[in-house]
Amino acid sequence: MRRPFYHYLMTVRDPHKKDAITLFANAVYLDDGFPKQSEDYQEISHYLELNGDYLAEMTTFDLAWERYVDRNKE
């Protein structure tokens, strides 16, 4: 069983780095409504489209999702 996407994001949080995925992960950490147990791309994407004001571009989510999927292949 793979870990939820949220757990992956928490591994890339960093208060000092300023790249897009790290900033996204830091913002998700502060988002109480984020679907923390989800492993479903569509569910998370829909949530971010409606509530992810902190996400400048959905391409950041897509890139983070690709890395999440790649990490779960290992």
Rank of each mutant, 00 (worst) to 15 (best):
Ala20Lys: 15
Gly52Ala: 07
Thr59Glu: 15
Asp14Arg: 09
Ala64Tyr: 07
Gly52Tyr: 04
Arg2Lys: 11
Pro35Ala: 12
Tyr68Asp: 05
Thr11Asn: 11
Met58Val: 00
Glu57His: 14
His46Leu: 14
His7Gln: 15
Gln37Thr: 15
Arg3Trp: 07
Leu50His: 10
Ala25Pro: 05
Arg67Ala: 13
Ala56Asp: 14
Leu48Asn: 06
Arg3Phe: 10
Arg71Glu: 14
Tyr47Arg: 07
Gly33Leu: 12
Ser45Ala: 15
Glu57Thr: 11
Arg2His: 02
Leu23Gly: 09
Lys36Met: 12
Leu23Ala: 10
Arg3Pro: 00
Lys36Pro: 02
Asp40Glu: 14
Gln42Asp: 15
Tyr47Phe: 15
Lys73Asn: 12
Tyr8Pro: 01
Leu9Thr: 05
Ile21Phe: 02
Thr59Tyr: 08
Tyr68His: 07
Ser38Trp: 08
Met10Asn: 02
Gln37Trp: 07
Tyr8Glu: 06
Ala20Glu: 14
Tyr6Met: 04
Pro4His: 00
Tyr6Ala: 06
Phe61Asn: 07
His16Ile: 01
Asp32Asn: 15
Glu66Pro: 00
Glu49Met: 12
Tyr68Val: 03
Ala27Lys: 09
Asp19Lys: 06
Gly33Val: 01
Lys17Gly: 04
Ala25Ser: 06
Lys73Thr: 06
Lys73Phe: 06
Ala25Cys: 10
Asp32Phe: 09
Leu55Ser: 07
Tyr8Trp: 10
Arg67Val: 00
Met1Asn: 13
Met58Lys: 14
Lys73Gln: 12
Asp70Cys: 02
Leu9Asn: 08
Glu43Ser: 13
His16Gln: 14
Met10Ser: 04
Tyr8Asn: 03
Thr60Phe: 01
Met1Leu: 13
Tyr54Met: 00
Thr60Glu: 00
Trp65Glu: 02
Phe61Cys: 03
Tyr41Asn: 10
Asp32Trp: 02
Asn51Leu: 07
His16Trp: 12
Leu50Trp: 00
Leu48Val: 06
Arg71Phe: 03
Ser38Asp: 01
Arg71Ser: 07
Leu48Ala: 05
His16Gly: 13
Leu55Gln: 11
Leu63Phe: 11
Tyr68Cys: 05
Ile21Lys: 15
Tyr47Lys: 07
Val12Asn: 03
Tyr54Pro: 04
Leu48Ile: 00
Gly52Cys: 04
Glu57Phe: 11
Tyr8Cys: 01
Phe5Leu: 05
Ala20Thr: 11
Asp19Gln: 05
Lys17Ile: 11
Thr59Lys: 15
